[in-house]
């Protein structure tokens, strides 16, 4: 306890001394750090674009020649922070399959903003039976039938696309995948491609 008190006294002296000086924060970035920072910024503030997003993998029963209900993708772009999740509805359902990928055109000019609260409530639900919930830092996406096998997506600060594949009768979620926001940087082509992608329980996410 005495050590704690001494630490407090020391901090108090430091604080009063520090308060007399100007608060200065100077930042230096190395070349490689600039590259990393660029990737970070790209995830944190992706440019608005109306460019195709390609989502993989496809559900097993889905192919170029067999697009159907199970090939549909419901896509949202989320931003996760400590206040919970916020996001943008991009294009909702899409069953365009090209070269083994679901193609989703993002059109943010017509998209609407929404927020998922930390308690899991969604002020702007698309389907109330599909409400997301939050457990710790994870986003829980209800499983098939609206809750049988929830999919847990790691929450990280930054934008990501959430692809939800419904079950056949569209009453629940069969699979869910999260992707780093892919942007169309003219030089790097995509922020996501500069970062590793891991797969855990069918969920893709930015490595690190």
């Amino acid at each position: 306890m005495a050590a704690h008190d001494e630490k407090i006294s020391q901090n108090r002296r430091k604080l009063f001394k520090a308060l007399s000086a100007a608060p200065v924060v100077t930042t230096f970035s190395s070349g490689s750090a600039l590259a990393n920072a660029s990737a970070h910024q790209c995830l944190a503030n992706p440019p608005v674009a109306s460019t195709p997003q390609y989502l993989e993998p496809l559900p097993a029963e889905c192919s170029d020649s067999n697009p159907g209900a199970n090939c549909m993708a419901y896509v949202e772009r989320f931003y996760w922070d400590n206040d919970g999740l916020s996001g943008t509805h991009l294009q909702y359902w899409n069953n365009t399959v090209t070269d083994g990928r679901i193609v989703v055109l993002t059109d943010e000019t017509t998209a609407t903003l929404f927020t998922v609260n930390p308690d899991g409530s969604d002020p702007d639900p698309i389907n109330t039976s599909w409400n997301y919930s939050v457990s710790g830092s994870n986003l829980i996406v209800p499983g098939q039938g609206g809750g049988a096998t929830p999919v847990s997506l790691p929450g990280k600060t930054g934008y990501f696309l959430l692809e939800v594949v419904p079950n056949a009768d569209l009453t629940g979620i069969q699979e869910a995948y999260a992707y780093p926001q892919a942007t169309q940087d003219p030089l790097a082509q995509s922020c996501g491609t500069s970062l590793g992608v891991t797969a855990t329980n069918g969920v893709h996410w930015v490595d690190g």
Binding site: V25, F28, S30, S32, A33, L34, N36, A37
Partner: peptide, 9 residues
């Protein structure tokens, strides 16, 4: 971020 910061007191 890979950045180095020089902080005042």
């Amino acid at each position: 971020t890979g950045e180095t910061h020089f902080l005042g007191d």
